[in-house]
Simulated assay, not measured.
Amino acid sequence: MTKNKLYVSIAYDGFSFHGILVRTMVRGKSVMIDGVVTGEPGYGQLVKPARDTDKSTETG
């Protein structure tokens, strides 16, 4: 993996960030450092965000 592939541009909680990804952590454990995957296969799980389907709570 090259550094060019690690360039990220994200938005989080109203802030925008641009830069090069150097470390990814999952529950306090490094799983990627400087483009090298260090995590164990099968560590973690995909968590999909919950959708709010109850429209009765909307205001406006």
Rank of each mutant, 00 (worst) to 15 (best):
M1T: 09
M1A: 10
M1C: 09
T2N: 13
T2G: 12
K3E: 05
K3H: 01
N4R: 14
N4L: 07
N4F: 05
K5P: 07
K5L: 12
Y7D: 08
Y7W: 09
V8R: 00
V8G: 00
V8K: 01
V8W: 00
V8E: 00
S9F: 02
S9K: 12
S9D: 14
I10N: 00
A11Y: 06
A11P: 01
Y12R: 03
Y12H: 06
D13E: 14
G14R: 02
G14I: 02
G14W: 01
G14F: 06
G14A: 06
F15P: 00
S16F: 05
S16P: 05
F17I: 00
F17E: 03
F17D: 00
F17T: 03
H18V: 15
H18P: 05
H18D: 15
G19N: 08
G19K: 05
I20Y: 10
I20M: 05
I20A: 02
L21Y: 01
L21R: 03
V22T: 14
R23F: 02
R23L: 08
M25S: 13
M25E: 14
M25L: 10
M25I: 10
M25G: 05
M25W: 06
V26L: 05
V26S: 08
V26E: 03
R27F: 06
R27L: 08
R27W: 06
R27H: 12
R27A: 13
G28P: 02
G28N: 04
K29Y: 06
K29H: 08
S30K: 08
V31F: 04
V31Q: 01
V31E: 04
V31M: 01
V31P: 01
M32W: 04
M32V: 09
I33M: 13
I33W: 11
I33Y: 14
D34P: 09
G35M: 06
V36E: 11
V36T: 14
V36R: 14
V36G: 09
V36Y: 10
V37Q: 07
V37E: 15
V37G: 13
V37W: 09
T38S: 11
T38F: 04
G39W: 01
G39I: 00
G39H: 03
E40K: 11
E40H: 10
E40R: 11
E40D: 13
P41I: 03
P41Q: 06
G42H: 01
G42S: 03
Y43E: 13
G44P: 00
G44Y: 03
G44N: 04
G44W: 02
Q45G: 05
Q45D: 04
V47F: 03
V47C: 04
V47D: 04
K48P: 06
P49T: 07
A50K: 07
T53G: 09
T53L: 13
T53A: 15
T53I: 12
D54A: 07
D54Y: 11
K55Y: 14
S56H: 12
S56V: 14
T57F: 08
E58H: 05
T59S: 11
T59Q: 13
T59P: 06
G60T: 13
